[in-house]
């Protein structure tokens, strides 16, 4: 099996294989995708997409999270995972892990054979619909006038706001936040707070695919943080209610205690789907 890195230059060949939500991530500094090709038939035997994290953090190990993995044959899958290990060694990854739903038997077997400890558990990704968000108590009031959508601010204000976030080490789900363009985020549903003409808070939402959005950053300066976050949530929920289908989903990843506590307050009892969690 031949392993090929998916890049911006050859993405067009693998658009049908790689799920739509990862197309925009190809080319990002910490995102990787590889595909295993049968040299005789040129067919795809296996493919995967992952992201490396904590590259710049001195207090944490570098990790690789596998977001998508596909294979029909455990042998091909294992070969691809070996290539994955080689790339991870190059990237100085200490730990690799995944949380994937709906893994097939060959996929599970290939992970196990490559040394992953796998268990069934509740995932950290929680999906809520736009309708559920609209029914929240916080959505009943109108947001304040100093909250705007991303489309209302200039690129310069966006960059200043991002600089404010990264200077406070707030990257959200995006370790390469400083290098991402404003266009990555939904311009109408994402919101920001302007204070003295500068962005002092962001709620950045990325459209993964039709009908599915992901919250990637929620941050406000310490000054009036709670009220600003509340108003950004209100603004974005109102915008989603006006512009999206009620059945559209929003993915909230409970990647730290702050998000977990917020979700417990907004959606008590709401849990992630059952997933296979594996770690090596």
């Amino acid at each position: 099996m031949k392993t090929i890195d998916i890049t911006n230059e050859n993405l067009y060949k693998y658009r049908d294989i790689l799920p739509e939500e990862y197309h925009e991530d190809i080319g990002r500094q910490y995102c990787r995708a590889i595909v295993g090709i049968n040299p005789d038939t040129d067919e795809t035997d296996a493919a995967m997409f992952w992201e490396i994290r904590n590259v710049e953090r001195i207090d944490s190990d570098i990790t690789a999270e596998i977001f998508w993995y596909k294979t029909d044959d455990e042998g091909n899958g294992q070969e691809l995972l070996k290539s994955f290990d080689v790339i991870c060694d190059y990237d100085k990854v200490n730990t690799s892990f995944f949380e994937l739903e709906n893994l097939t038997d060959p996929e599970i077997t290939s992970f196990r054979n490559e040394g992953y400890a796998i268990k069934n558990t509740e995932g950290i990704n929680v999906f809520v619909t736009v309708e559920e968000l609209s029914k929240l108590d916080i959505a009943k009031k109108a947001p304040k006038k100093y909250v705007y959508s991303l489309s209302d601010i200039s690129n310069l204000q966006f960059k200043q706001g991002i600089m404010n976030c990264v200077f406070h080490s707030k990257y959200g789900l995006l370790d390469d936040l400083p290098f991402l363009p404003q266009t990555r985020f939904d311009p109408d549903i994402s919101s920001c707070v302007l204070t003295d003409g500068m962005v002092s808070g962001f709620l950045l939402i990325h459209r993964m695919r039709q009908g599915c959005y992901r919250v990637e950053l929620l941050y406000s300066d310490k000054l009036d943080a709670a009220i600003n976050i509340l108003n950004m949530l209100r603004y974005s929920i109102h915008a989603a209610r006006d512009l999206c289908d009620p059945t559209d989903k929003v993915l909230i990843r409970m990647h730290n205690d702050n998000v977990t506590n917020l979700m417990k307050k907004l959606f008590p009892g709401k849990k992630g789907h059952k997933v296979y969690r594996g770690i090596k």
């Binding site: 600089m163 990264v166 200077f167 080490s169 400083p178 300066d221």
Partner: peptide, 27 residues
């Protein structure tokens, strides 16, 4: 916010803050 902008001379300045990651400094 929380970054201290200091004029060392008329033509050189420093922005002093908590520890920055490389990406933040680069940006």
């Amino acid at each position: 916010k929380d970054c201290f902008n200091i004029a060392l001379t008329d033509e050189s300045f420093v922005l002093l803050t908590e520890n920055l990651r490389d990406s933040a400094a680069q940006m």
